[in-house]
Write a protein that binds this DNA or RNA. Structure first.
Lengths: 233, 233
DNA sequence: CGCCAGTTTGACCAAGATCAACGCAAGTGG
DNA sequence: CCACTTGCGTTGATCTTGGTCAAACTGGCG
């Protein structure tokens, strides 16, 4: 699968480019999009360093080269709402507004490409295939958003955590041994739970032999069947 | 504002076309899009009648002329997840998959236009302005989706119901006296609450003078300030 | 070794779900 | 016209889930 380029509506969903990339590649527009990527600035961020903040001007979008990024905002009462995690190949910061609605920070040390929005828009205007790929990506993001809405609204804590582990497994290359670079804190804010609940659920999964936790940031899925079952409880 | 035409990623958000329509109108592409609308079939649905069901082929999208529509799916355990309400001018059924992921039913007696998807796609491929309008609409839907995710994940029952009333007020023409065509049932499934909780919250708002409930399906907002306050508690 | 950030566990509490009645208005049939 | 049903809506009593508060644990690092 191609992960070279991308103009993703990564504002929603996890922002991978999967089929969109593929479509573009197949349509022979890869060169044009690679040209865009040559306009990118390569930036390094340390753990917890800010990439942009709510309210900043939003003239760029980003693509993760390595490491992980969190996109979030603070609520009036001080709680934090974590909209998405982005890993290598994922795009973010494509909000379509002049001002950033969210902030972005590096979860771990991260390298990202920064691309000017207007150049991308020009390309997409001239290139129906790229536009179509972008639309498809956005539709997929939208579908993801609806799925997550469902989980947040109706699923138990255990189901949310299970779904999170499954999501991370799907998005990582290795399916069994998961590396979770983010602290429990971030997971809780992503799932609309407290850190204690996340811990408890993970512990209970461990007790039941569904997962193993060799270290806090490394989780192994032992019983995928049971995890799937737990995910739609 | 123009509400004549639309190719909305209405799968997300409430599916209005607001700024997107405007953009298209300004760019002088209105005629082309009106031509699309001439391909539409006008359909009548009675209250609770099915428009399409999960699993059906998804070759069309729809635009509500009058009445209201709910888009939903059933979960494995029999609960229902209500993804969106659509009113006059809103579009729905633009999922981008071959099979329907959701079902759609008329909430009240409704008239809808049904449009073939491929014709729309052809238009959008040939017309960068229309494509851009569509992208903007989808981005807005995505932003709505993230807002709703936030509410579903982190807000109290009272805040969800308050936000719902505000959303309905924003979307209806008259801002004070709200007509809520959907049963409490639907509201609960939209907000991820039980019908009892929705009732209780509405009753408490009434007790506090924030709203009046002349009849079950008609709600008057008496104290908008207090309602706004309740919405981000 | 001690400190510190992050993680885990336990005890208790509260928001909302569940279960169970009851109310109420719109049909429906005698 | 009036019992009776039926579909919603509302209210109350109890229970469960997950949040809150508090404390202990762990690993990395000076």
């Amino acid at each position: 699968m191609y992960r070279q380029i991308g103009a993703s509506g990564s504002f929603g969903g996890h922002g991978r480019l999967a089929a969109a990339d593929l479509a573009v590649a197949q349509s022979g527009q890869l060169d044009a999009l690679l040209a865009i990527e040559r306009l990118a600035l390569r930036l390094n961020y340390a753990r917890n360093q800010e990439i942009y903040a709510e309210g900043d001007p939003g003239g760029y979008w980003y693509k993760v080269v390595s490491g992980a990024v969190r996109v979030f905002k603070f609520l009036a009462d001080g709680r934090r709402y974590l909209a998405q995690f982005c890993f290598a190949g994922d795009c973010f910061g494509f909000e379509g507004t002049d001002e950033r609605l969210f902030s972005a920070e590096a979860v771990s040390n991260a390298v990202v490409l920064r691309l000017p929005r207007h150049a991308t828009e020009r390309l997409v205007d001239q290139n129906p295939a790229a536009a179509r790929a972008l639309r498809e990506t956005m539709l997929r993001d939208l579908a993801n958003a609806y799925g997550r809405m469902l989980r947040l609204g109706r699923m138990t804590a255990a189901a949310r955590v299970a779904a999170f582990l499954i999501e991370m497994a799907e998005r990582s290359d290795r399916r069994k041994k998961l590396d979770l670079p983010m602290p429990r804190n971030d997971i809780a804010d992503y799932l609309g739970l407290t850190i204690e609940t996340v811990c408890r659920v993970l512990s209970s999964f461990k007790r039941n032999g569904i997962i193993a936790i060799p270290s806090a940031h490394s989780i192994e899925i032992c019983d995928r069947r049971a995890l799937d079952l737990a995910a739609d409880t």
